[in-house]
């Protein structure tokens, strides 16, 4: 089998990063506040890349990703907190719950095109939030508290890297090309034998699964989750990351999630001004560079592609 140099290099880089941060955290060189933001960053990366799967690669406007995150967060947290079940099965069940809801919701609404789908997914996110507010078992509007802190650095890192790899593998396959063809031209794709419903629903549900995973990791780091955490604005946050990085670029989403998380952490104390700056930047990007930082391209280390060498 051929060796994929890009992959090997990126993975090595990732693990150096892992040990570096691990060391800095355990030596308490990184303060508690920045540590929290690093955790948040990795959760944001999962959310942004998985959302990109729907908005960027499949080309469907999805504005309710936080709803799936909430399903994963609440399902897993209810399992660990209310039922004393172990962490890893809870993450899995939380993700599967999001996946199943993704299929059930996606099947009817993904027939809608463009703006109608956008508004339907937005509505979905709001419905999830309001349902949680009305569910006393998970604390209603007050939120669910006393969630054990099970999310640790190795688990978070490994899961994030695994999800990025899985998304990449999905896109770079015949199934992924089917997904891209739907973005490009639905009618041409369908007459070329692509089952639109199957690929739309499957991609939407896979993205939901990962959002569920991110939600579970989130809940088990921050001790408490409230329905308000997963409101429309949260979905917008992830949308902005995906769009800023470039719809259709996994590396773009990673960069944008990183950049925006850092900026957001630095401006934490400025409240309204932070949001004003955020919105101005958002509009400016759309006006001057609507394709985002990376467009649909992926970052590659070109020195690794030797002339006449192996290509993926």
């Amino acid at each position: 089998m051929k060796i994929n140099r890009q992959l090997v290099f990126n993975l090595s880089l990732a693990f150096i990063l892992f040990f570096l941060i691990h060391f800095l955290m355990s030596a308490k060189i990184i303060s508690q506040y920045y540590q929290l933001n690093i955790y948040l960053l990795f959760i944001n990366i999962i959310m942004a890349t998985s959302l990109n799967l729907v908005n960027g690669f499949l080309g469907q406007l999805h504005l309710g990703h936080a709803g799936f995150m909430a399903i994963g967060a609440y399902t897993s947290a209810a399992m660990t907190t209310n039922m004393d079940l172990p962490f890893l099965p809870s993450i899995l069940v939380g993700s599967i719950a999001a996946f199943v809801v993704g299929v059930l919701v996606g099947y009817p609404i993904l027939r809608l095109g463009g703006d109608y789908l956008a508004i339907a997914t937005l509505g979905f996110g709001e419905i999830v939030r309001i349902m949680i507010v009305n569910t006393e078992y998970v604390g209603g509007a007050r939120g669910l508290s006393g969630i054990p802190r099970y999310t640790n650095w190795p688990i978070l890192f490994l899961i994030t890297v695994a999800i990025i790899l899985l998304i990449r593998n999905y896109i770079n396959s015949s199934h992924g090309r089917a997904v891209l063809s739907i973005r490009e031209d639905e009618i041409a794709a369908e007459t070329m034998g692509i089952n639109l419903t199957k690929y739309k629903v499957m991609t939407f549900a896979i993205a939901a699964f990962f959002a569920g995973t991110a939600g579970a990791l989130y809940a088990h780091y921050f001790f408490i989750i409230t329905p308000a955490t997963f409101n429309f604005l949260k979905s917008v946050d992830y949308l902005v990351m995906a769009v800023l990085g470039g719809l259709g670029s996994i590396t773009g989403s990673i960069f944008a999630a990183t950049g925006l998380t850092i900026i957001s952490a630095l401006l934490q104390d400025f409240g309204a001004v932070r949001m004003i700056a955020y919105s101005v930047v958002l509009v400016a990007i759309m006006l001057f560079r609507p394709s985002g930082l990376m467009g649909t391209k992926e970052m590659k280390f070109s020195f690794l592609d030797k002339k006449g060498g192996n290509k993926e």
Binding site: V240, V243, S279, V280, L282, V283, M286, L287
Partner: peptide
């Protein structure tokens, strides 16, 4: 997204 930006 611009509309969302203006709204925020």
């Amino acid at each position: 997204i611009t509309a969302i930006g203006v709204s925020l």
